[in-house]
Design a protein around this nucleic acid. Structure first.
Lengths: 365, 365
DNA sequence: CATAGGATAGAAAGCGCTTTCTAAAGCGAG
DNA sequence: CTCGCTTTAGAAAGCGCTTTCTATCCTATG
């Protein structure tokens, strides 16, 4: 039905092998022959059959990008950056495939199977991971197997895989023999949270609420650890209160709203609220305003991520900026093997405290 | 290297054909045989070779989703909805591939080639199209060719393809013979804009600025047409001013900011500003506030799309809601052939005026 | 008890491409 | 003018799967 290589070959008066060589370009073909083939391709509107090509060559130009929520700009920005590294102009010429896992470990596995089936050239997993030991192990096993089969695996914004144990590591230098072990681009969530809480403490806040993300996510834990480390640094007594002033929710606006209501119930004297991320912070602000509290006059609010809308919120949000675009681009290059692997396989991306209008010294003391 | 069908067959003590039948499930296999095969698959950790499978079956389970900007929630929501229809549970079991065109016609064509190469099962094109005749024709040709080759083509949020002319239409009833002509899920941008401007006029606004999107985009033109139709309906004299009170920009915040500054320069007596979309509206608000104007006290502001953050902006944004999720889901089902084609191949999605705090009657008159 | 007919499984022919192996020219050097 | 090397192109063998066509084994029926 469709035009095939053989049709082009016949039209150009050459063999199929020659056409293939002209198109892949990794073999010398005389100029005259080449242009004759190219013209035939043109005239017949020939389009390579990808599956056939992938089968014969045992490689494909698909790169999978797994995201937790494609409608969330956080992931959109990362995915966009990864994809921009795959541009044909940049020497990639890969097809970046964004897969929406919805944060579900099962779907993550499902998509990985689908990608493995397609013999994807690389896979980039973004966003926090679920800390369920069973899932962690299943995921790690599959990722190592993918890597061993020649698919490049890059984790972006999640912690590196645990060390392989059990039957793995048959050769001394792990990851050197096969396709290479999974690589990681990690965010310094802990450090960022620590600086953020440090900033609030320096302003004089002592009763700081925390509307955290889902309890089982790595990112949630890391940010919480940073927060508590800062509290402990300042005054170990604050740590005792921290537990009571922390509520968990999802990474969305309504969690911020509901969480804030709960926090106010627990501690009406709150002078600051930290949000799991900027989207949650929006909900926090809405709840505070509805409670008749001004920001930052009565309560300071801070978020995490520094998404595009954060500087535009009113008041502009104090937040911890994660260079998402840079991180995504880095992950993309690692996935393409265009950047050399970072030492230890882990590149940590710095986060930066952005102090804006939503945080100020608490009224009086 | 990898485990193949033959390995599984050998292990299960059956032929390759049987294994294939067990896995595809569209042929009766005796229960005992089936479970023996399944066990072998399990034990060998067999994963189908997608390219080989696609080649032999002459189909693939890839569905391409082209978006203008993956970091923009507008597209994120649509893509997410399309993808949710592809869930294995929903009987789809397709791999939705989100491709970021950056709004560039060339990249659009590039990705379509890539998808055609992969023999994609369907392609969904989202977002406004560029109104360059040369590109429109090139795109239409390629899409019709894709459709003819059996790939389902769905346009979402852009106008239907122009009627095929020239050498096309060899058979009387177009689109019936082959895979089917491209389908469209269109947004009623014109009607939405018309109602929005109507709302402002009803409030008493007469000097209404418009920070429009890129001039060459269909969406921009449609919204502008709706706007002007409303003005003309009310008082033809307003139409004369409309040109002067319209500026063009991109679909981003800074365009809203810059555009508003320009509009204020042209007409300091502005009482309302319409934005190309909600993101642009954020920039409009920022510029107005910096100019010392209150919203909606001095100037009313309205947007388009009703993205998640729009209700949270302060003041909450009056806007035209487009049911993006529903539209994306519809497009997804059409792409899967799960919904029957709408009459004329075009399903138009209603838009809804959401009146919120950012618009009010102008001060005095 | 013989035989038609259904159920189940195997053999084998591709799907369209890449790539190794091989052959035919074309060239300068002895 | 011949020999051996390089350049260029063809033949053909798969890549791993699906699917048609056949063969076999039962079971039901006359």
């Amino acid at each position: 039905m469709a035009v095939t290589l053989a049709d082009v070959a016949a039209r150009a008066g050459v063999s199929a092998a020659t056409v293939s060589r002209v198109l892949s370009g990794n073999y010398p073909v005389a100029g005259a022959t080449r242009s004759r083939v190219l013209r035939a391709v043109e005239e017949l509107e020939y389009v390579v059959n990808g599956p056939a090509s992938s089968l014969a060559a045992a490689t494909s130009d698909l790169v999978g990008v797994l995201v937790n929520d494609i409608a969330d700009p956080f992931f959109g920005i990362i995915a966009s950056a990864v994809q921009s590294e795959m541009e044909p102009e940049k020497g990639g010429g890969k097809l970046a495939v964004v897969c929406n896992t919805g944060g579900s470990p099962e779907r993550e596995l499902t998509y990985l199977t689908l990608l493995q089936r397609q013999r994807a050239a690389a896979v980039v997993l973004t966003g926090s991971a679920v800390e369920d030991p069973a899932h962690t192990e299943a995921l790690a096993t599959r990722l190592r197997r993918l890597a061993a089969a020649g698919t490049r695996v890059v984790l972006c914004g999640r912690p590196p895989l645990p060390e392989a144990d059990g039957d793995g590591g048959r050769d001394g230098q792990r990851g050197a023999a096969d396709g290479g072990a999974p690589l990681t681009v990690a965010f310094d969530n802990r450090g960022g949270a620590r600086r953020l809480t440090g900033h609030l403490l320096a302003l004089g806040h002592r009763r700081i609420g925390y509307v955290a993300g889902p309890a089982e996510r790595t990112t949630t834990r890391h940010r919480l650890e940073g927060h508590r480390a800062a509290l402990a640094d300042h005054d170990r007594a604050l740590l005792a209160e921290a537990e009571r002033l922390t509520v968990h929710g999802a990474y969305d606006r309504s969690s911020g709203y509901d969480g804030t209501l709960e926090l106010l119930r627990r501690e009406p004297g709150l002078t600051a609220v930290l949000a799991a991320n900027d989207t949650v912070a929006l909900g926090v602000c809405a709840a505070l305003r509805e409670a008749g509290l001004s920001i930052p006059g009565d309560v300071s609010v801070a978020g995490f991520d520094d998404l595009p809308f954060s500087a535009d919120a009113s008041p502009a949000l104090t937040t911890v900026r994660i260079p998402l675009h840079g991180a995504g681009a880095r992950a993309g290059r690692l996935a393409l093997g265009r950047d050399s692997a970072p030492p230890g396989g882990v590149a940590t991306v710095r986060t930066e405290l952005m102090v804006r209008a939503s945080t100020a010294a608490p009224r009086s003391g």
